[in-house]
């Protein structure tokens, strides 16, 4: 199946000369949740704005569902829902009116049953006749999501949906995203919370300084990052690992003072007990034991720093 969103060599230079996107290539598969991680100013919002038609690209092309977003903008945009980062809402409008308006703006005929379903799903039904200015920040964000969903998009862009949102609401938001995925909606969300990407994404993309540094399956990425190192420091240095201990997961450090064991924290048996027993059986005396974990954060920071280098 061809990707539902295809971004090719997308560049965006603002009038000031600032290059927000430096040739981004990205394919997004139908039905997946892609989290775009990146620091502030990385180009996340510019990327989304360009796909959605709010910003015009300097060069490059984007297609959504096979429709070019410039030449065939009607077909492309009809498929897209956008939840912006800023809470941009008409303060005096009633909740359900603004949601109905969005549906109409996207050329869809009124469907009160659907609007009710969306408002209920987002716990907004009781507030349907409230003016938007009366709502809390979290509720306003839900209204933005309701608006974006009102025309039944196949692709949903969530630009930092949980920025400045409390923990409870963040969990609710993840719940909503999971539900949308079950309905078959493709979701692209930007975030700078690694925890968030871990919790809900299928794939994770890292963007910095207008470039995509990495796009990888979350599980693979997590496997890489779920690795933990156990350093067994020895009282007396050795020259080689005793045969009884030999394994792929075990190596000796440079000066022979420590054994370094790599294991997966998420597997059922880490093999630590066995290792320590064998170390004792081999007659080695332990001085200390240290564990280290490489986190998504480490990899992320590493990548972003590489990106910073000239």
């Amino acid at each position: 199946m061809p990707p539902i969103v295809e971004i090719n060599a997308l560049r965006k230079a603002y009038a000031s000369g600032f290059e927000a996107l430096k040739g981004v290539d990205l394919s997004i598969e139908e039905g997946e949740i892609l989290a775009l991680l990146g620091p502030n100013g990385a180009g996340k919002t510019t990327l989304i704005s360009t796909v959605c038609g709010i910003t015009t690209a300097t060069s490059g092309a984007v297609s959504v569902g096979g429709h070019d977003t410039v030449r065939d903008f009607r077909a492309a945009r009809s498929m897209i829902g956008l939840v912006p980062q800023e809470i941009n809402l008409e303060p005096f409008e009633k909740v359900q009116n603004t949601v109905k308006f969005s549906r109409g703006l996207f050329g869809q005929t009124p469907d009160p049953a659907l609007i009710e379903k969306i408002l209920r799903q987002l716990s907004l039904w009781d507030k349907r006749d409230a003016q938007i200015r009366e709502l809390s920040g979290g509720m306003k964000r839900r209204v933005l999501i309701a608006k974006a969903l009102s025309h039944e998009p196949r692709v949903l862009f969530l630009d930092e949906p949980t920025a400045g949102v409390d923990v409870e609401l963040r969990r609710d938001m993840w719940e909503i995203v999971a539900e949308l995925k079950r309905d078959g909606v493709t979701i692209i969300l930007t975030t700078h919370y690694i925890e968030e990407a871990e919790a809900i994404a299928d794939r994770i993309g890292v963007i910095a300084s207008g470039e995509i540094l990495l796009v990888e399956d979350k599980d693979k990425l997590m496997a890489r990052m779920g690795k933990k190192e156990l350093e067994v420091q020895l009282s007396a240095p050795i020259t080689a690992i005793p045969d009884s201990l030999a394994s792929d997961a075990l190596r000796l450090n440079e000066d022979g003072t420590a054994l370094i064991y790599t294991y997966d924290t998420r597997s059922e048996r880490t093999g630590i007990t066995k290792l320590l027993a064998e170390v004792a059986a081999a007659g080695l005396t332990l001085r200390d034991v240290v564990t280290r974990q490489s986190s998504l954060e480490d990899i992320f920071v590493g990548l972003v720093h590489e990106g910073d280098a000239p």
Partner: peptide
Amino acid sequence: FIGTIFELLSAPVN
């Protein structure tokens, strides 16, 4: 002024 123009720009309208 209030930013809701984003919706207009991203909608399938000319």
